[in-house]
Amino acid sequence: MTSLDSVPETAPLLAVDRLNTRFDTPEGEVAAVNDVSFTIQPGETIGIVGESGSGKSQVFLSIMGLLAINGRATGSVRFRGEEVLGIPRQRLNRIRGRHMSMIFQDPMTSLNPYLKVSQQLNEVLMQHMGLGQREATKRSIAMLDLVRIPEASRRIDMYPHEFSGGMRQRVMIAMALLCQPGLLIADEPTTALDVTVQAQILDVMEDLRCELQTAIVLITHDMGVIARLSDRVMVMYGGRVVETGPVQALFDHPQHPYTAGLLRAMPRVDRHGTSELYVIPGQPPNLQYLPAGCAYQDRCPHVHDRCLGDVPPLIATAPGRAKACFLDQIHSDA
């Protein structure tokens, strides 16, 4: 569904076409990602929102070749025009960490506790840029400075457990950016952190976005984070993209009932009064037993017969906007 992309003037950095990810479990096959297609332009920031289990992380773990052993991904993922899905690990290793990096949700466990931070940073530069030990250390310290780790030249020789959670996430970010990749995938980078630390990390990312011209994928369930950092949003539900569009437009006029629900469930300062926080009723779908038709049918306030039988396709509704819902034939706005 590449026809959706209304801004084809530059070649996309990443083009994902009909990505499907399946897991074999003892209980049966789990359909984690279903027919997901999208593109990312160089330098843009795209937010991916959805509840846990919506498949948002699995899309990018598939792209990075990091699926668990029982998972397999099919479809096409082109990075700068080159297919990366299913290529030999050796070729993939020339791309990931070099041109395409990823940081993860839990900074407490994502760094190797048995290696000094310097070792973990330097090995990236030595591997991909062919630098020597000394040059690599210099660059690593510079990068730690950039993510605002105080006394970087001293702390680089410490072990991860000597850093706080926020500091560790900064180290992770620094590590991901060492080779100045074209794409940074941040999978819930602030979820595991204290609120104040969250803000600091977001500050760092915001600055880096301007400074390094790196395209950023921000995976989160926090609409607030999206609002602050992204240019464009992609909402996922039940392993599918249900709506996509520019941040402002999507926030102002959500077109999919799920997006509308997410926005209503978001705490806001501009909505005063005693109004209780809205909660979307029901549970996210079980990806092992996805219903026929729309995955959102059980929780959707606008559900009708057609939703039960057919999966609504993702169709363009305006330049740069698309949604996967039959609803527009009835209402134009949810």
């Binding site: 990091l66 290793n93 960490g97 839990d106 994502s110 190797n112 506790p113 591997q127 590590m175």
Partner: peptide, 11 residues
């Protein structure tokens, strides 16, 4: 997770 990180680094 740290082995996943190492793989993500392209080692």
């Amino acid at each position: 997770n740290y082995i996943r990180t190492a793989r993500a680094k392209g080692l």
